[in-house]
Amino acid sequence: MLQWLPENVSTFGQGVDNLFTLIYWITVVVFIAVMATLITFLIKYRHREGHRAEYIEGSTTLEIVWTAATTLIVFGLAMLSLPQWNKIKSPTDFPENPDVVVQVSGKQFNWDMTYPGPDNELGTDDDLELENELHVPVDAVVHIRLTAEDVIHSFFVPQLRLKQDALPNRFIDVWFKAIKAGRYEIPCAELCGFGHSGMLGYLNVHTQADYDAWVKERWPQ
């Protein structure tokens, strides 16, 4: 099933995929074990003439065993997941000094990208606004200031393993570092109205040289 995952192109994506794989194998093993037990019981203990069920009310030992085992597994999983989660979502854990900062704003039914320009400040004359096109260099830390103008949208880049809702009147920071150049889709993942289906932007990950050329073209000094 995991081969259906889109290719991962972010630095933290592998961590997500590893957890995905781990949970996949845990659940597959549990599922097969439970189903095998069930089917064995169904065959072995099917009704036969002259054969009576055995009166068993339960077993405290077994109850304790499976309660403890399940608790241990889920706590173990939770502990393994915490660092990954913080790495991706917790602003205090973000890599500092981003190479690129962009404000992304969802509005029915487009993604507005605002680059602060050479002065690194939003709301000044050298800002650049682009509709549905996000340009970043490869192997660079990108910070995105995510917001929305009308309703809730959700910024989703499947290949980055990144998803974050964008809320009106609130700014939420997300980050990523892409490791492969290419053009990736940015669908909106939260129902946002009749144009939700097809609300689609593009993330253009350029090589450093291409990105520099793009910057030069946009802001010729």
């Binding site: 203990y45 099917r46 009704h47 054969h51 069920a53 068993i56 109850e63 399940t70 608790t71």
Partner: peptide, 26 residues
């Protein structure tokens, strides 16, 4: 949320335990 797996597992295993050494009618 993950803790919910615990009572869910208890119930599932108990259903299996109920069938164990039973006389199952389909």
């Amino acid at each position: 949320t993950m803790l919910i797996a615990v009572p869910s597992a208890i119930k599932t295993f108990n259903w299996l335990g109920t069938m164990f050494r039973g006389s199952i009618r389909f």
